[in-house]
Design a protein around this nucleic acid. Structure first.
Lengths: 193, 193, 193, 193
DNA sequence: GATGAATGAGTCTTCATTCAT
DNA sequence: TATGAATGAAGACTCATTCAT
């Protein structure tokens, strides 16, 4: 391996470590300070600045690191070449299977309070592909014919809403399956022609 | 009036003033500091501590003061003795008519970022009465028979979702009416004829 | 005394204390930090920010506090209604009598390194009145007729130059008088008999 | 070439490179950090410490490297075997012709603010030879008979003063020539018997 | 009770210096 | 010898809280 590659690898390793540290802190709901990040990483405060220009930069990187996998997984489903109906079901399934990530994502978004940013991200990651999907479903006559962005919002609300409030409802595995069935029944009844 | 009553009245007056100050600051999107609150109120920083133990206490009070009117207005509609169907339509209408309040409420929630708190409040203010409403509608055979909390979440998502993203969509008055029509068309499909 | 006056007095007292602290530190040639200023004053770091918005503000105040007396004393001499010749001799005398202040002033200027600022201050305090003085002397036919600003610079250089380098020259009281005589002999040659 | 000589040559090469880097940075008015020096040189930060014990050491070397040419050029003029009067005129001319260097020198001095050092350098480079020149001029009966060091200071002040303040005066080429003429007239009038 | 000056822990950021490779 | 990542001491600034008047 060349020296350059080694360096890049090491660089990436430390950055990953930093991301992990921030994630841990977010999960613990502790406030994110450069001091804290360094301590959690077990490196010196100054070292953080060898990897990132400043806190904003660092948080931006963490942001991307957290969002990218979600963005990708959603995009893979929502933008595939399958039938719109199929994709919708797959999307709903995926939401049920990644709910832990999703909860983390939501908490992160709330920590990183910036209305503009949140809406932008939500829009980029889920709403835009979902809106495209809805448009295609409507064109094919599979979905009810309302404005596609409204339809997308409604689907998002119907699916994500119950997921977000799950931790409040005391639920077991079978409950989760029951919830899924109910959501599917609603989707079938409301969305599909 | 007794001295005690006078004191209570004065106490309430100042607290109201403090709440207003915080609201003003949130609207201006300025960061909420004890110093700033005192300055906005026109009282001394130290005096705040005569009314509240600490900042958390103060913010808790503001929290309640902001939420109570929304809670009440929602409760008045959702818990009235009218027909569930009627109440549902009234609720949806109310959401469309108070959207300014609602935006303020959302901004406040983002300032006061605390996952636990947000969910709790949302639950108290809207979801519980809405769930009760759904239960009654289902029992009466008016709404499709799924778990009432899921139905409530779905309705919430369908109605609030598009509202939250409104600032992003470039919209005019007629757009708003179009959105309302679309949402109503979706909601109607919940209802069993 | 009213409460307001008392407050103003106290405010001024603390600011004076801060100025003194900075002066002390400059004399000691120690680097001027907010921490150090606070320590030297015997007050808390945060308190400095109750009196000044930031370090720049504080240093600006110190700047003025140091310069004002010098500015005033120079202005009183250079802008008086006396004969230009008389004023010139008085100015030279004054330079010899305040040389301790002047040395402190020069050291301060070097600490506060900002070319623009230094030149501006020097210009405001000494060069402008001195140039006016020269212009009047030339008009009256008392001084040799060259550009007044150049003449002013030359006088400044002739008088201040030797003063600045005094600490290097091992000198005694009588030396100082000898230097003064020499400078005066040079200055006299500017004057048209 | 022996290995030792090779090493010395290399050492000198790198040091020259470092001096150039610092000069460049001073001209750009950017703050001089070890990191920046290394980056500008294209060598590693750690390597600087193979050539210099610490930053102070490095800056001292740069100091000498910058001053030496000025010192030499001044010395060549002031210490030549020509007539004192001729040398004085050559000195004044040289000041007018090297004003770019001089400005760089002044900026450097302001960066390297240290009263002691400045006075020492000024003394070494200009004042000592100028004082010698004055002494010779006085002995020859060409210059006015005051203490040679005072005379030197006065000349320095008369010539350098206007030069230093030049950037303030909005001046064109012809202005510069006018200034030169005025200064020469003053010198002739005041200094020369 | 009201006041607001004083406090100091906590936050981000810079940079000279060290040291393992 | 060369490298540059790691270090940590400083530095400027913020802000919730206390307390003497």
């Amino acid at each position: 391996m060349t020296a350059v590659k080694k360096k890049e690898l090491l660089d990436h390793l430390v950055k990953t470590q930093i991301v992990d540290a921030v994630m841990t802190m977010i999960k613990k709901n502790s406030s994110i300070t450069m001091d804290g990040i360094a301590r959690t990483c077990g490196i010196a405060k100054g070292s953080l600045y060898n990897y990132f220009k400043n806190k904003e930069d660092l948080m931006g990187y963490v942001h991307q690191a957290i969002l990218e996998p979600i963005r990708e997984s959603k995009s893979m489903i929502l933008d595939s070449r399958k039938d719109p109906l199929t994709r919708l079901y797959e999307f709903i399934d995926s939401v049920f299977h990644i709910n832990e990530d999703l909860h983390f994502y939501f908490r992160f978004m709330e920590q990183e309070r910036s209305v503009a940013v949140e809406k932008k991200e939500r829009s980029d990651i889920v709403m835009q592909p979902l809106t495209r999907l809805c448009r295609q479903g409507i064109e094919k006559g599979q979905f009810i014919d309302v404005a596609p962005d409204i339809l997308a919002e409604a689907i998002y609300g119907m699916v994500i809403g119950p997921m977000k409030s799950l931790p409040l409802v005391s639920y077991k595995k079978q409950n989760l399956e029951k919830i899924r069935q109910d959501i599917l029944r609603l989707i079938e009844r409301i969305i599909i022609v």
